[in-house]
């Protein structure tokens, strides 16, 4: 379908097409939403979301790109897949939430959402994975919490210390043997993602 562009900006359907194209894994079925609200009713963090998934999908259809990408909804998604198994239209809701996170980062709009810290948690996590091939909880917790929650970092440190004392947290990260192989794979994937925009819209470069 070729959307007709008005002088005011892209046609409403353009944003939905963009979201669908950026969601990998076959048909996401986003365009089939019937606004039944099963998703929002099933969502454990629904009460804390600025828009339920159903609401957000109506906004996507209406082309409200900025409002959608400024919403805290994708960041409050806990990836529990309740909505996805219950959706009568088999919409890949959880995957769409991940797509919206990536788009919000790309457009910089997450900073205006009430979940502005969330991307940095993800980025700190993946930094360790990129450098070591494994996650590193102590590094993640200290870097992220000292930056974003310095006041409560003291209490968090208490838990971290308990983790160390219980032998549940490493003091140094572990690096896999094939880290160079992994980095070559990830670099190639980033390069391909940049070329093939329909598969990857991510990255805050």
């Amino acid at each position: 379908m070729v959307a007709q562009r008005s002088a005011a900006g892209p046609a409403p359907g353009a944003f939905m097409d963009e979201v669908i194209a950026a969601t990998p894994g076959g048909a996401s079925h986003l365009e089939l939403c019937v606004q039944c609200g099963t998703c929002g009713g099933s969502c454990p963090s629904g009460p804390d979301m600025e828009h339920t998934p159903r609401h957000l999908f109506a906004m996507i259809r209406a082309g409200m790109k900025e409002e959608v990408l400024r919403s805290n909804t994708p960041w409050y998604c806990v990836s529990c897949y309740y909505c996805m198994v219950r959706c009568p239209q088999e919409i890949h809701i959880t995957d769409i939430m991940y797509t919206l996170k990536r788009m919000a980062i790309k457009e910089g709009l997450y900073r205006e959402s009430s979940a502005a810290d969330a991307p940095d948690f993800s980025e700190t996590f993946i930094d360790f994975v990129n450098n070591y091939g494994r996650s590193f909880e102590l590094g993640l917790a200290t870097r992220y919490h000292l930056r974003h929650h310095p006041l409560t970092a003291v209490r968090k440190a208490g838990m971290g210390l308990g983790m160390v004392r219980k032998g549940r947290m490493d003091l140094t990260p572990k690096r896999i043997n094939g880290i160079e192989q992994l980095q070559a794979i990830l670099a190639k994937a980033r390069e391909l993602g940049a070329e093939d925009g329909a598969i990857s819209q991510g990255g805050r470069q």
Partner: peptide, 10 residues
């Protein structure tokens, strides 16, 4: 649940 929030193909 973090990597896919940042960069999908990697």
């Amino acid at each position: 649940t973090e990597y896919i929030a940042i960069d999908v193909l990697p």
